[in-house]
Design a protein around this nucleic acid. Structure first.
Lengths: 128, 128
DNA sequence: GCTAAAATGACAATAGTTATCAATTTGGAA
DNA sequence: TTCCAAATTGATAACTATTGTCATTTTAGC
């Protein structure tokens, strides 16, 4: 990855902003500092830096929302290979809400956990 | 909420499909059963049923991705009032990956936890 | 300085979803 | 049963977030 003025500026603004901005918000911040960056460039750099592990992209699910008739508390696992969504029992994270409430003092209304990885089927298929 | 043929069909298809379909996939399933439902109607009903608690919408984050320069493992809290995103230390869910791996046998590459609720600031503001 | 690889950014395109609105359906009251 | 208001439908247009295209510019090693 070569150096670029724009990328440096983007990382700079991101580092000095505690509010986890969206791409749109970042664009605004950059404008305010008179360092305009093209929209395409911004997205390209964010994705590059995210896959290089320099920053983190917070976006639980990829593209579109999934719907589930099971309203009982549980979590989800998305297979990177086949894209299938699996249910995960809520017992895997027993006191997560209580712990978070105690750590922050926030009112927690709901929470979601999304795991990404490789499911058993796909693991088998890759081994053979 | 009044009765409607379409809503009944949508819930029916959703209930008999273990794969957590997207809206698009649902539309296909409905077509296969010769019960065509307009795209708008589908989305309207999914959102209605989700906010009535009849089904669950799996979509960690609302609209757009947020970016975070902090790549240390941690989770996020989104305030329903002000929309701000807060960091939550990963210690609130200590053994979630281990537990999930043991419960499923899946390879887990990454996971995200997103909490929704009301932050301290907004709680105060609402009380006064 | 020269050159190949990398990066930029204006523009067009895509995907998922929501808004608009006239026509239809539903459910309760007369 | 008939009437009416409220709820629902669905075709279409619109919107938002994001990615693809591609000619131009910048970077970095020789």
């Amino acid at each position: 990855m070569n150096y670029s003025k724009q990328r440096e500026k983007i990382l700079d603004v991101l580092t000095n902003n505690p509010i986890h901005p969206t791409a749109d918000e970042l664009l605004e911040f950059l404008k305010c500092e008179n360092s305009n960056v093209g929209l395409t460039t911004l997205y390209r750099n964010l994705n590059q830096m995210a896959s290089a592990g320099m920053i983190k992209k917070i976006d639980g699910l990829e593209a579109s929302a999934h719907f589930d008739h099971n309203t009982f508390e549980h979590y989800h696992f998305i297979c990177k290979e086949c894209g299938k969504v699996f249910d995960i029992p809520s017992s895997v994270a027993p006191s997560v809400v209580k712990n978070t409430r105690e750590a922050t003092g926030f009112d927690i209304i709901s929470h979601d956990i999304v795991f990404h990885g490789i499911c058993s089927e796909c693991k088998k298929r890759k081994e053979s």
